[in-house]
């Protein structure tokens, strides 16, 4: 199946594009998408989303189409062909 990935800020810098079309196996979940991105872009991608001491995802939201999912709780959310996935920037403050 094919999904569209929307990126911002440092994640956009790592993948080199504001939107990307990505091919994933049928039945893939958000965790598979993140594994694919780590495999493709290596440590550089990982540094944008995981705490490098604990290895855990820091808290951020991931939009699947317009529905928000939480990196800390919902990483096993199933994806479907044609989904648009937006990774929000893992930034706390403001």
């Amino acid at each position: 199946m094919n999904i569209t990935l929307k990126t911002f800020a440092t994640i956009r810098d790592v993948v080199g594009a504001a939107t990307l079309s990505i091919e994933l196996p049928t039945g893939a979940r958000l965790s598979d998408l993140f594994a694919h991105l780590t495999h493709t872009y290596g440590k550089n991608f990982d540094r944008q989303v995981r705490d490098q001491l604990t290895g855990a995802y820091v808290p951020f939201l991931i939009l699947v189409n317009t529905t928000p999912y939480r990196s800390t709780h919902d990483i096993e959310t199933p994806l479907h062909d044609g989904d648009v996935v937006t990774i929000m920037v893992p930034f706390d403050g403001g």
């Binding site: 911002f8 440092t10 810098d13 944008q48 995981r50 705490d51 893992p90 930034f91 403001g94």
Partner: peptide, 20 residues
């Protein structure tokens, strides 16, 4: 180790929140 303080703030500062 934290993406916010090691990657995002150094590169974009608080304006990163516009899109967020």
């Amino acid at each position: 180790a934290h993406p916010a303080t090691s990657e995002i703030l150094p590169r974009y500062g608080t304006p990163v929140l516009v899109h967020a």
